[in-house]
Amino acid sequence: MPQRPFHLLLVDDEVADAELFEEVFREDFPEVVITRALNGQEALDHLARSAVDPAVPRPQLIVLDLNMPVMNGHDFLQRAKAHDGYRSIPVLVLSTSAGVRDVQRSYHNFASGYAVKPASYADLKALIQRVSDYWRGAVVLPRIDQLME
């Protein structure tokens, strides 16, 4: 029995990082549909479109980098979590920064989790496996149609 699609919004301006992330998901989790945004503003625009256009997938999980142009991850988190319609979408920060201030600020702005980007392909695969096991298996997420309620 085929699994239902799981919609993930990847917000990262580093093209190589995003392509590697997508490659791991394509290989190991083909049912995950990834939409990419290059910065926080593009991510907010996607969320706004998904609220009014059924053809635009509403993410069940957002994976967010912090250091991006136009709107960084901290500003995105602050705006998204202040919006009633987006607040319940879990956000996993995936950043090269292990800085205490970045971690604290992310959780202060209601990030659902924080992980440091791995340096190797094998470590990235292992991290994505753990992320998938947790967000797609261990926890109960609201249905997409319940996220606006």
Rank of each mutant, 00 (worst) to 15 (best):
D102G: 05
Q78K: 15
S112V: 08
A48Y: 08
L127M: 14
V56R: 00
A48Q: 12
G73A: 12
P118F: 04
N67W: 03
L141K: 02
L66S: 03
G73T: 01
P54L: 08
S95K: 00
H74I: 10
D13T: 09
V15P: 01
L10G: 08
D102L: 10
Q60L: 11
P118R: 07
R130P: 02
P57L: 07
V139A: 03
Q146K: 12
I34S: 06
W135M: 06
L8H: 05
S50G: 13
D84A: 13
V91C: 03
R4T: 12
L44K: 11
A111L: 10
F110P: 00
P54S: 15
A126Q: 05
D75A: 15
T35C: 12
F6T: 04
G73P: 04
P54G: 09
A115M: 02
R143P: 03
A82R: 13
W135H: 05
V140K: 08
N72T: 10
L8A: 08
E42P: 01
E19D: 12
L64S: 13
K117N: 09
G85E: 06
P5R: 12
A122R: 07
R36V: 05
M148S: 04
D17N: 15
L10V: 04
R58I: 03
A119E: 12
R101V: 12
P57V: 13
D53E: 06
D53G: 02
V103S: 00
E14I: 02
E22F: 01
A111N: 02
Y107S: 14
L9E: 03
V140E: 10
E19K: 10
L64C: 14
D145G: 04
R87L: 09
K125W: 01
V93C: 02
D84C: 06
V93G: 04
R105F: 04
V91E: 09
L44S: 13
A138G: 03
Y134S: 11
G113Y: 05
S120C: 03
Q41T: 04
D45P: 06
V103C: 08
S88T: 15
V139Y: 05
P2H: 06
V116R: 00
